[in-house]
Nucleic acid binder design. Sequence first.
DNA 1: TGCAATTATGTCATTTCTGATATATTTATA
DNA 2: TATAAATATATCAGAAATGACATAATTGCA
Lengths: 101, 101
Amino acid sequence: MNTTKRKKLEAAGFTVGGTQDFLGLTDEEMAYIEIKRSLSESLQSRRKQQKLTQVQAAKILRTSQSRVAKMEKADKSVSIDLLVRANLALGATPRELKHAF
Amino acid sequence: MNTTKRKKLEAAGFTVGGTQDFLGLTDEEMAYIEIKRSLSESLQSRRKQQKLTQVQAAKILRTSQSRVAKMEKADKSVSIDLLVRANLALGATPRELKHAF
DNA sequence: TGCAATTATGTCATTTCTGATATATTTATA
DNA sequence: TATAAATATATCAGAAATGACATAATTGCA
């Protein structure tokens, strides 16, 4: 497994020991991770599109810069709920959120 | 507002006093509620399609019957995360989940 | 390079979610 | 109707998510 993918999985709350560990992930787990990753990616591109810094976005979202950073990294401490609400607050339509799935 | 809609909103965590209170909901709030409602509906129809009782579904989902009931009611104590994971565990594909948005 | 701005990471108190249990209500059918 | 099966509601202890703060790391540019 490459380092980038490993880091993403670990950020998502999985312990990755060796290559074969990847096989331990069920389809559900992989789908869940992918949904979060996609939502976080969507959030970041939406923020950048609006030329906002994380600090500015945090103000709009009524949270802190550090949490915005974690949202964009799909950190394990971030829920799908938070990502969905943050995307909506930055102007995403439900229609656009479909693409995350 | 009709009683059915009122009950759904209250279950979703909103206090509904009179008709005009509905206007207090932002687009984001309404979109968020609708997503949850749609995911819960999807979960229930998926369970019924498989001829499962809530008790049986609870076993598959490794939770309790009462929580399954709450998921299907889009109770305020239920997160989108839980609904997404439950749908996936009952065989939904990410593609199918798109329809909830 | 050095500085300022931006983004990332670690930690923690509080809030919210979750599973479980108990019990109530509803539904189906003998 | 009476009973059993299924679903709904209430509550609570433990787990997880959240916002906030401090600080580290990275990026951009004078």
